[in-house]
Design a protein around this nucleic acid. Structure first.
Lengths: 206, 206, 206, 206
DNA sequence: GAGTAAACGAGACGGTACGTCGGGTCTTATG
DNA sequence: CATAAGACCCGACGTACCGTCTCGTTTACTC
């Protein structure tokens, strides 16, 4: 294993404070300017840092924004509200609130768009954002299985993973589409309808 | 009603051929370069047109790409395969194929990202792309209701519209998320699983 | 000889009023905008004329401005003030006043500058402006010779022409340089000093 | 006195070589293209420099060309040929040769034309070109006075300055007009005639 | 506590695209 | 035919941002 903490390399160490300041400044700039008008010089200035310092740590705008946005998603929590439906409603509302924050709206879609032509960037997004948050699905599923609300997990691990992926794509996709494409709020009423369809299907009697 | 066909305005009329050539050139450039490296000068050159001609018709890159991509979505058709599930599978596969085309991948997410800070652009996207394709949901729903696969539409018109919106967000969102965010193919197996969840719910016995 | 008055050519005849309006509009625009910011579209609009009409009559900006400025020089008159010195002073003051008008300042030097790379333009300037005004030198010289202020003209015609040219270059050049390059007014005091040098030479006792 | 050499300002210092390369490239482009077809991008490319570097140092085409042309004038020298007439003839011939160089012809008149509407530019021209070269008049005058060819300088300083200015306007103006407006060469014969008039006046017996 | 090596702030630099503007040509319908 | 209107192609404009570089300075660790 290569030295992760290189036993203090020679020379002046990188400022730890700078990283945090830069990410915060990036989010601040995203709020005020949005992705396309955000400039790295502006971020550097807001962070009280030189542009070179910024380039020493991130390869470019995309990578920086991925990291800045990724931190936001770690705030998500799966509440225990007693039933699967209520639990999902809770986390979906949090997710909707997150997507309502301008730094998230502007940044997330932009890097996803860039990632369609940049495989490294896609992997970075998947690693930093998508896969990290599948923990929520896993946790909810486990809790629901325990409660008897869902059938036991299939023994086939791949099959189980596919179900998690599908669930995540449906939930995340629906909320993102509602919020950013349709441009309507994912409010409590909508979330209730959505979770109903998710659990019971479209064909269920209303 | 104001004159829609202004009985020949003075001066040389705009070239009708130019519009089509520009939109085609835009898609071509999206395929080769992707959104972020696409330049209007390049599009103009491909279309055999001056840059000014392009700016006379569209306000900028965003508006141009929306129109170029919107045309693609009109190719979608709802096949009649005998059952609701099969119909949805059919159209979802078409949608997935569309999102697999580079001109669509690069362009669509980018303009959605821009639209988070530009209300006019969002409306343009909604009008040109989203609302236009809800026809597919309406048609599928009507056909399924006729077949007895879905309960009759609610009498409340707003309620009905909400259901259509929700269905569209779930379907479009899931496919987009699978394809562009998770970066995995929306192949037949995945579509079958997805439609099963959509119609019967997550809790359904497998 | 080709038909100068074409006995009514077929089709609509050219508007005679347009020419005058365009030249006047050109001078007006020169006053307000100067050479470099003057646009042909603007001139056309001021003249109440379409741009095509303008291009049908002049090859471009340079030719148009030469004609517009040339008209101004025809106002110059050689006054009879009784002595050669006084006559020259009179015409030089007129010339200075002309060069003080913005339409002249801006236009004249600009076309001269262009003419350094465009032989047709130089000939046009010479024909329309320079040679036309040598009449003043000829007239003044004749009058002075008659008065006995100058020796009789040399019999050699070329020699005589050379003297006229030299005189014109010295007078016109000095005034232009004073006014446009040195940027100081060619007022009465300066003109008096200048004419003294011109007639008596630098070495003359003051 | 404020720091002229600011003890090394922060940041990368400006490339000294770039300035010279740009001015040389400007003259080269003036020769090949002339003022009106000269583009800053082309100059930058010739100089092996980015367009931005050029704009960082000069406000625009006018300022750049003034500096590029001004350097040429510093080559002028007043030869000592033994008499005032011969000295003037010598420097006038140099001046004529200078005005025969395409980079000078195109550039000089163009910036003078622009300066009629731009006071800062006029001052720049005066400072960089006109006033600098009055040294030649001063030197010639001093030498001639010493030789007894000219009466001693007036004690009134303003009066003396006025004479210098007048001489400069007459000499420079005549040569410029002969060369650029009349479009004929200021060759030895012409220069001899001119200097004769300058020193002895028009009325002198030939 | 001097030496070394890297991080750092500042800003110049080579590029590239932007959106605008003017020149000059053309294509309409109208006079 | 000439004209008014305006679209069209072309190319330069001046600006902005990118990502790299080159300075002088600062801050640790090492010998």
């Amino acid at each position: 294993m290569h030295s992760r903490t290189p036993a203090s390399r020679p020379g002046r160490p990188r400022s730890a404070a700078a990283d945090a300041a830069i990410l915060a400044a990036t989010r601040e700039a995203l709020v005020e300017l949005g992705w396309s008008k955000l400039t790295l010089q502006d971020v550097a200035t807001r962070a009280g840092v030189a542009k070179t310092t910024l380039y020493r740590r991130w390869a470019g705008k995309n990578e920086l924004v991925v990291d800045a946005v990724a931190e936001l998603f770690d705030e998500l929590r799966l509440p225990d509200r007693g039933s699967l439906a209520a639990d999902i409603e809770g986390v979906v509302l949090q997710f909707a609130a997150l997507l309502d924050r301008p730094e998230c709206r502007s940044g997330l879609m932009a890097v996803v768009a860039e990632s369609t032509r940049d495989d490294l960037l896609r992997e970075r997004i998947r690693g930093s954002i998508v896969e990290r948050q599948k923990r929520l699905v896993l946790e909810g599923r486990a809790r629901a299985t325990e409660r008897g609300e869902l059938p036991p997990e299939p023994e086939d691990e791949e099959e189980a993973a596919r179900t998690v992926d599908l669930t995540f794509d449906v939930v995340a996709g629906a909320v993102v589409h509602r919020t950013l494409v349709s441009g309507k709020p994912a409010d409590e009423a909508w979330v209730r309808s959505f979770v109903r369809v998710l659990l019971l299907g479209l064909a269920a009697p209303s």
